[in-house]
Design a protein around this nucleic acid. Structure first.
Length: 943
RNA sequence: GCGCAUGUGGCGUAAUUGGUAGCCGCGCCAGACUUAGGAUCUGGUGCUUCACGGCGUGGGGGUUCGAGUCCCUCCAUGCGCACCA
């Protein structure tokens, strides 16, 4: 009769229940122990639930948490939900169901799935961003941002009241560096203290918005009149809305933003100290995009106005052949001469209506328009034409460039396209060479390409002639500064983050308007509750959904801000809230944050490299500046787990028919590949009966088979419902149990590597647990563990395993840990070991990986307290030391012979023993040229 | 185009500091027990050769007594960014 030896479903249900009852994973501050904070990236509870890819990271972090606990650390390992967001709202628009309801359902499903895997989360600290108790503090942070500005001298955020006090006493002098916050002061302009004091409240507010870290300004957006809403760049395709195909135009409208650019330099330099993967750091560096250069002012010929450009190559100033303005540049209108007015207007309209995305997708198409205006070259006095081109970005630098076609490939392309016009305007070729390339960097010539490299000697360049590029850059900047026609400066690619969304399902921005001036709520008035509305869509007049809220006014009088915060608001500080999740006085108490500090081990997907991970660093630094928290980075150690992809199955329909051809024969027909649910194609063989009932239109399908079977095709893709390739953890747990799932996901390979899901091999892992179970039990599954003294061999196996497992988990190499456990069990099985002295410590070190399994056997061993409270055993050198070693002896690097020798022998003794060995003598006619001996490793004879 | 990462058996992978390439698992082959089972156990399994041997870590080159590991170069795949002046 079949005996259920290892009954995983009973064991797992039992222990999940026990852990809940005993509150095994509840965590409190304990200053007598060192803390360790393990955090998973905030999950968004989607309607699709968890698939096998999601738990990969959670399992790894759970192992680390449990391991650190056994090592005596006080471990914080919380979980919660990033619960505001678009999918729930889209669903609400379609069904009219409140997003809160669907969100709650999704969370419930997530929680059930998570619980089944046996994680050690402290659920008493759960947070949900959509709950007022949580978003109260998100709003509170926004208010702090609003009332702060970034002081570039102290390099930190400071209360705006200090800036106001300074304005009242001294006004604003643009040249004074203490007011420099990016380029803000340039736009604001200088004013005296008297002037400031005479300004209207509105004017003062407008000026201060230029300094606040949360501010309202006019920003360029994709506006879709037909849908009455702003669209994100990824919602626009080919200049029309993705949904509905309505035209989209670029429009300037008021928009809340966060001044993350103020922190650009700190976000960049502080990356150095973080233990994050190089690729994530590099992605952040690129995203921040620091570039050092200089501004140069060009005087318009015969006009008052000047054009300021930004360049990183002031050394090429003598090669300037034209100046290009972005179509949105504010000077376009002013500089255009009457003759060109129509063409310029036409061009600007065309360029503005192209979305950013369209522009990016279409970089090869060159377009531009001459304005009719000229500027004077600051050094040669030559007349240089002014053009408009959409290859120049309005939002970067000054929105204007000095074009050097010979040494910049973008300018080159533009000049090549407009070569004849430019030649006429300049009275010379636009490709004026000013750098001579060194011999090893030789350049094919200006017929085909520009020479962009920063190496070579300056020519045709007046005072720069003969200088090397690097020296020329320095010399050019100082001369430009001398002549007061520009200034060295640093630019960042990073833009301020748009913070307002024309959406319902997000945190209300705690702002109301009084006489057109934005005011924040008082902290005591928080939270500003998200009001109920009748429809989750914009109003007829195009206002955001919140404008539908009835009687929703501050003090019944003033309009609230109608946009809500973006998805990333709540996730930018959640790691702090877990430390003190129920605190209704502060976002986190000083005591809690002082103890838990920042995350020691942060795990999540690399898709958050430049979004979440930049914002959470930004908010952390801001809260640090305010003295609210004692650390200025959120997470010291970050690991990005790889993605688990799905393996999709395809059937091939012959075009124009309802006939399907097996994968091996599909090339003989014109076919269309269709996804088919992987559950009805086990082992790549289609179950035709199930297929016919799967979808109505397949009911009468016909099939062309190969070898009597219908074979489906495969492709590795993202795991997703729409691709019918989803495998859920529930399926695996049902068949093998959670402990097998945990071990298997870790066994698949290095955590950081992406891999397609395959259950090939899961039986090996499951079998390992069963073999281990059998060490504890006799043939009839009766518990049978002896108290005999362990042998040397048994102790060696145990201690070797403890050592390896500890080393591997410390470097987050979980796959090798599992194979070490397997080796251990193989050896103990060979030794027929059923001794407590071996098996008991083994359960402790296994418990992070297979917690239910270890807990059950731990109990059977007679322990009444949970294994989670045990102490990780210390391996002892004495059990590991070997007396002998079988030396591989190589002749000229190839291993030929093996000689067993004592490890006590000295180098000379080994040498002697090898040379006198008969086996070695067989290979040698004469004395060796050289003999290399590495004690305990290898012997190499060179003949 | 730029940046980052990765290339090892039929497959997933392993190899602290340069020191026996292929641990562990899957799959496959053979056998045992049994009497149909997708169970368990034992042995084998990089390629090639009857064998001795030879060849093998994406390709080519180099450093070294010795290279999967270090250096140069090329190729492939994946991811990210992309007119950022």
């Amino acid at each position: 009769m079949f005996i259920m030896e290892y009954n995983f479903s009973a064991i797992e249900a039992k222990w999940q229940d026990e852990w809940r009852k005993r509150r095994t994973y509840k965590t409190e501050i304990d200053t007598s122990r060192e803390k360790y904070y393990v955090l998973d990236m905030f999950p968004y509870p989607s309607g699709a639930g968890l698939h096998v890819g999601h738990p990969l990271g959670y399992i790894a972090s759970d192992i680390v948490s449990r391991y650190k606990r056994l090592k005596g650390f006080n471990v914080l390992h919380p979980m919660g939900y990033d619960a505001f967001g678009l999918p729930a709202e889209q669903y609400a628009i379609q069904t009219g169901q409140h997003p809160k309801v669907t969100t709650e359902q999704n969370i419930k499903r997530y929680r059930e799935q998570l619980d089944k895997i046996g994680f050690c989360f402290d659920w008493s600290r759960e947070v949900r961003t959509c709950e007022p108790e949580y978003y109260k503090w998100t709003q509170w942070i926004f208010i702090q941002l609003f009332h702060s500005w970034y002081n570039n001298v102290s390099q930190k955020a400071e209360p705006i009241s200090q800036l106001i006090a300074t304005f009242e006493k001294e006004g604003l002098q643009c040249s004074l560096p203490q007011y420099l916050t990016g380029d803000i002061e340039q736009e604001v302009g200088s004013f005296s203290a008297e002037k400031w004091n005479s300004f209207s409240e509105k004017k003062k507010s407008d000026i201060l918005l230029n300094f606040r870290l949360a501010y309202l300004s006019e920003a360029w957006v994709n506006w879709c009149p037909a849908l009455g809403t702003v669209l994100a760049n990824d919602e626009v395709k080919d200049g029309v809305s993705e949904r509905g195909g309505y035209p989209v135009e670029r429009k300037q409208m008021p928009q809340w933003s966060l001044r993350i650019t103020a922190y650009a330099d700190r976000l960049l330099t502080d990356l150095e100290s973080l233990d994050w993967s190089e690729s994530i750091k590099e992605a952040q560096r690129n995203w921040i995009g620091k570039s050092e250069g200089t501004s140069i002012i060009f005087q318009l010929d015969g006009r008052e106005e000047t054009i300021e450009v930004f360049t990183t190559r002031p050394d090429t100033i003598f090669g300037v052949s034209f100046v290009t303005l972005a179509p949105e540049h504010e000077l376009v209108n002013k500089v255009t001469v009457a003759e060109y007015r129509n063409s310029v207007d036409e061009y600007v309209t065309m360029a503005k209506n192209r979305s950013e995305r369209e522009r990016m997708a279409d970089v090869k198409r060159i377009s531009g328009q001459f304005t009719g205006a000229y500027v004077i070259h600051p050094f040669t006095g030559a007349k240089i034409p002014v053009w408009i081109g959409d290859y120049v970005l309005a939002g970067y630098g000054t929105g204007a460039v000095m074009a050097v076609p010979a040494h910049d490939s973008r300018d080159y392309g533009f000049a090549k396209y407009f070569e004849s016009q430019l030649t006429e305007q300049l009275g010379r070729s636009p490709f004026l060479q000013v750098i001579e390339a060194p011999a090893d960097k030789a350049h094919e010539g200006y017929e085909t390409a520009s020479y962009d490299e920063k190496y070579g000697t300056l020519i045709n360049s007046g005072f720069l002639d003969g200088k090397e590029v690097k020296a020329a850059i320095t010399a050019a900047i100082s001369e430009i500064e001398n002549k007061k026609i520009g200034q060295g400066r640093t630019n960042y690619r990073l833009r301020d983050a748009a913070f307002g969304r024309q959406r319902y399902w997000g945190e209300p921005i705690p702002v109301y308007y009084k006489d057109g001036i934005p005011q924040t709520l008082d902290a005591s008035e928080l939270p500003l509750i998200l009001p109920e509305i009748d429809k989750y869509q914009p109003t007829e007049s195009g206002e955001p959904p919140l404008a539908r809220a009835k009687d929703w006014k501050y003090k019944g009088e003033y309009e609230y801000e109608a946009t809500t915060m973006p998805g990333w608001a709540g996730s930018s500080w959640y790691f702090l809230r877990y430390m003190d999740a129920k605190n209704d006085k502060e976002l986190v108490s000083k005591e809690a944050v002082g103890y838990w500090k920042n995350v020691d081990f942060y795990l999540g997907g690399s898709e958050h490299a430049t979004g979440h991970l930049l914002y959470v660093r930004f908010w952390t630094k801001f809260l640090y500046d305010l003295g609210i928290i004692p650390m200025n980075e959120p997470a010291q150690k970050l690991i990005n787990q790889g993605m688990i992809q799905g393996v999709s199955s395809f059937v091939y329909r012959i075009n124009g028919t309802n006939k399907f051809v097996s994968a091996g024969l599909k090339n003989q027909y014109q076919t269309t590949a269709l996804h088919v649910d992987i559950s009805i194609a086990p082992n790549n063989e289609l179950n035709i009966e199930q297929f016919k009932v799967w979808r109505e239109d397949f009911a009468n399908a016909e099939f062309i088979l190969e070898d009597g079977k219908y074979k489906v095709g495969n492709e590795v893709e993202k795991m997703s419902k729409s691709k019918f390739n989803v495998v859920t953890p529930d399926d695996i747990i049902e068949e093998y149990g959670a402990d097998t799932l945990r071990l298997y996901e870790m066994f698949l390979g290095p955590l950081e590597q992406s891999k397609p899901w395959s259950t090939q091999g899961i039986s090996g892992v499951h079998n390992f647990l069963r073999r281990l179970w059998r060490l504890f039990h006799d043939k009839d599954n009766n518990f049978n563990v002896s108290n005999d003294e362990p042998t040397k061999a048994e102790l060696k196996t145990l201690h070797k395993t403890i050592k390896k497992v500890e080393e591997d988990v410390e470097r987050f190499s979980f796959n090798t840990t599992i194979s070490n456990f397997m080796i251990c069990v193989n050896e103990l099985t060979d030794l027929k070991c059923n001794k407590r002295a071996i098996l008991e410590p083994l359960m402790i070190i296994l418990s992070p990986y297979a917690p239910h399994f270890a807990e059950e056997l731990w109990e059977q061993l007679g322990n009444s307290e949970s294994v989670t409270g045990a102490t990780f055993p210390q391996w002892k050198e004495e059990f590991l030391t070997e007396n002998e070693f079988e030396y591989p002896v190589s002749i000229n690097g190839k291993v030929k012979i093996k000689i067993k020798l004592s490890l006590q022998l000295s180098k000379e003794e080994i040498e002697q023993a090898v040379l006198t060995s008969d086996e070695v003598k067989k290979f040698m006619q004469e004395a060796p040229k050289k003999l290399i001996v590495v004690p305990g490793r290898i012997v190499n004879i060179v003949i």
